[in-house]
Amino acid sequence: MAGEAQQSGGHSGPEKTGILSFPYSRRFFLLFMLAILAGLGVRQYLKPSGFGEIGFFRTAALDEEAAREPTLQGKGACEVCHKAEFDAHEKDVHLTVQCEDCHGPAAEHVQARTDGLAPDKGKMFRELAQANCLACHRRLQARPKLFPTIDAAEHFTRMGVTDSSVKCQGCHSPHEPLFLDRKVSQARLHPLIHACTDCHLDPAIRSKALPDGHVVTFQCKDCHADVLADYKTKPHKDLECSTCHVFHQDSEFSGRIFKNGNPKFCLMCHQQQPFRGKGSIPQLASFEAHRNEMASDDADRQKRCVDCHAEEKIHTMHRPAKSVVVGEGGAR
């Protein structure tokens, strides 16, 4: 094959061939150098101006960032006009969630209202879909056990919901998720309650007895054995204590536990709804109508659900003396 190539007469002697002896090698290295120079040129052209002058960034970026108008306003801006919602929100367990977390950045909205523009200008996001709530409340292994999370399908089955497209707001209020009758900060402090699955991977561990020498754990039954014994005889017995006495964790060691008598809290489950099956959960068409119907005097017309139904349906509300026993035979 090589024989077909053009032979450049008789220079096959011992003459030393340098790297640039031939036109092709000279051209090649010229081309190579040009490619490197072109690469450096392109790099110089593409490098943003001002890059690296005072750090690993463009100098102008400092002014650009400083000149940006803040889009988030903070909840103080909302309080000015939306006092009722703000107060409800500040009282309940969503108090650490900023208004703009759900409603979006408020800069345009505040500006539009300040300038007195038409209501359709600077509108906030209001139509929360299931997915918006589930962004925080979807049950995930990684979420802390004490954070309220649901598996949507399981939750709907349990609540007798037949229309799975229903919005969470059908029962829940994002502004006051628990309808607390007092502020979170006024609710009683309670030590952290341990669950078996905090340490053990297998959920089946919950049904097993503690072995001898097991580390001391802290559970509801340790202090409230008599209330629990009473509760286990009542129709609500299949619910966890924390379903009603929601635990709101404050720190690594403690949180707030709620005793919530607000009828709206009970009605989250017991309000008759178009999306809930008839026979699933006892439901009321109208709480007010029911109360008026059952009342015999004005005092009755002020009663809450628990004032009439606790003894029969939940558990005795007036705890016997020495219900909480700490020490020998009590808390383990």
Binding site: S8, H11, F22, Y24
Partner: peptide
């Protein structure tokens, strides 16, 4: 592709081999 230089002989082969 040959950079318009079509010579091939022992000296070019030696250079190519060295490179």
């Amino acid at each position: 592709l040959a950079l318009f230089d079509l010579r091939v002989d022992d000296r070019t082969r030696a250079l190519d081999h060295r490179v």
